[in-house]
Design a protein around this nucleic acid. Structure first.
Lengths: 141, 141
DNA sequence: ACGACGATTACGACGCGTGACAGTTA
DNA sequence: TTAACTGTCACGCGTCGTAATCGTCG
């Protein structure tokens, strides 16, 4: 299933960093930066050292990209993803704790969402107000 | 008019920076920083140099605070506010151009809004997903 | 003259990347 | 050969925090 021990040859296409960056819409530098910060490690490397990424990792990067607007720092995302990994892992004991941490992050995400929503409302009114002022043939005088 | 020459004593309460900062919810430092960047100049100063702000300027600061979430840089807000000032000003000729610029900013604000909305949607799904993973009694196994 | 408040200046730090470069690999 | 990739170091930007030192207000 998720971890097919019966399939020794991982024939899944592995991409190198350029492909990945292009697909996700990040620069090579940024992808390496994220790695440096512990956000994702390439699944493997070529003999020569080229990074090789799986499709899952591309998804992970996309996830990261979606998370940013929530105002999470790289470090937070790092911890969050790590918790998620554990929560999906095999170790029953660790999973509970990891899920708790995940819940914690989920809650924070929800808070950020609310904040975002409020900001959006404010900003919406503000944008309208701007438009009004811009298009008013003559101000209130 | 806007400048009542017949009222020599501007009895409007002027606040000094501490009051202003507290009301708006910014630090003194930030208020001074905004001034440094050209966002707002205190209406006047005491003989000794203390900054004095009008109520209008408090509003302006609140406006600025609401604008930030839209991703405008301080410089952009600076230009925007300046355009607004001119658009409200007396000079008929300048007003047209200023309103055009304002419209430009309004449009950009609208774009940012859309972007915000999209991000919000993404993030919303993401937060749910997180919650699901966190609360799942057992993952898909 | 006292205590709260403010001015100015300057150094620093955090978060998030972005070059630039010289060497290696495909 | 050429394009893509490597690691490393350092830099920049925006947004303030903080502290020192000194002046002002009532």
């Amino acid at each position: 299933m998720a971890t097919p021990a019966s399939d020794p040859t991982p024939a899944r296409t592995l991409l190198q960093i350029g492909e990945v960056a292009e697909r996700v819409g990040l620069s090579l530098r940024t992808v390496r930066y994220y790695e440096e910060q512990g956000l994702l490690t390439p699944e493997s490397r070529t003999a020569g050292g080229f990074r090789l990424y799986s499709e899952d990792q591309v998804d992970r990067l996309l996830l990261i990209k979606q998370m940013k607007p929530l105002g999470f720092t790289v470090q937070e995302m790092c911890e969050l993803l790590e918790a998620r990994d554990v929560a999906r892992g095999a170790d029953e004991g660790d999973r509970a704790a990891a899920r708790a941490r995940l819940a914690n992050y989920a809650e924070r995400a929800a808070e950020r969402l609310d904040k975002l929503r409020r900001q959006l409302r404010d900003a919406q009114g503000l944008a309208e107000q701007l438009r009004d002022e811009a298009t008013a043939t003559a101000p209130g005088r």
